[in-house]
Amino acid sequence: MKRKQMLNTLVQLATIDNELAGRESSWLTQLGGKLGLTAEEIATAFRSPMAPPNFTYLAEEERFEYLYNLIQLMKVDGKVFSSEITFCERVASRLGYKSGVVRALSSHIYSDPSITADRLMLQQKANRYLQAS
């Protein structure tokens, strides 16, 4: 269920500007496959995305994975809109991160998924923005 929820949250970000770019759609479809979702589950996420879930049950690593994927998706089409930044910041807050985490990580996360970032360094940086529970 967590994988479907992640894909749904990402679809919401991708469609926040009322346009789903080809690169965004392709990236989401590939990610859905990597998450082990079926073609039907991926198609359902595009047709009727659900509201973002309650993130409190997620482990720290899962929270980071959400955040990383959100930021990468925001950049995948080469255009970053203020509405996308706001959405990412809102979800980051719901994930338990303090403000500024999106800005701190986004310069290290690339729009091209084939360019891999130092994920350990990014997770350590993100952890500095975790709010005390």
Rank of each mutant, 00 (worst) to 15 (best):
R47K: 15
T15C: 15
C88S: 07
E62N: 11
L35D: 01
S114Q: 12
Y57D: 12
Q131H: 03
S99L: 11
T38I: 04
A39R: 12
D112K: 13
P113S: 09
V11H: 05
S133H: 12
Y57R: 11
L105R: 00
S114M: 12
K125V: 09
M1V: 11
E61H: 13
K2E: 14
T29L: 07
N127H: 11
K4A: 12
R103V: 03
L95M: 02
F81V: 05
R119S: 14
M74L: 06
I85M: 07
D112N: 15
L58C: 10
L31F: 14
F55A: 07
T15M: 15
G36F: 06
S107G: 10
S48P: 00
R63D: 02
Y97S: 01
P53D: 03
L10P: 07
K98L: 14
A117D: 06
I115C: 08
T9L: 06
E60F: 08
N127Y: 12
M6L: 15
S25N: 08
S111M: 11
V101N: 00
T9N: 06
L20I: 08
A45M: 02
P52Q: 06
F46V: 08
G22P: 03
I42A: 03
T116F: 10
N69D: 10
T116E: 13
S106G: 02
F81I: 03
G33C: 08
C88T: 01
V11N: 05
D112A: 15
S93H: 14
R3P: 00
N127W: 09
S99T: 05
T15K: 15
G100W: 03
M121H: 11
L13T: 05
K98Y: 04
L7P: 10
A14K: 05
T29K: 09
A21V: 06
A59K: 15
E62Q: 15
M1C: 11
I109M: 07
R103L: 13
S114L: 15
M74G: 01
G33T: 05
I71V: 14
K75G: 08
T56N: 12
D118N: 15
V91R: 01
R119W: 06
E89P: 01
I109G: 02
R3G: 01
R63I: 05
A132Y: 08
D17F: 08
A59M: 13
N54T: 05
E41V: 02
Y68L: 15
L10D: 04
L120A: 14
K75I: 09
G33W: 06
A104I: 01
S93D: 13
N18I: 07
E40Y: 02
F81K: 11
S107T: 13
R103H: 10
F87S: 00
L20D: 01
L105N: 00
K79N: 10
A104V: 01
P52E: 05
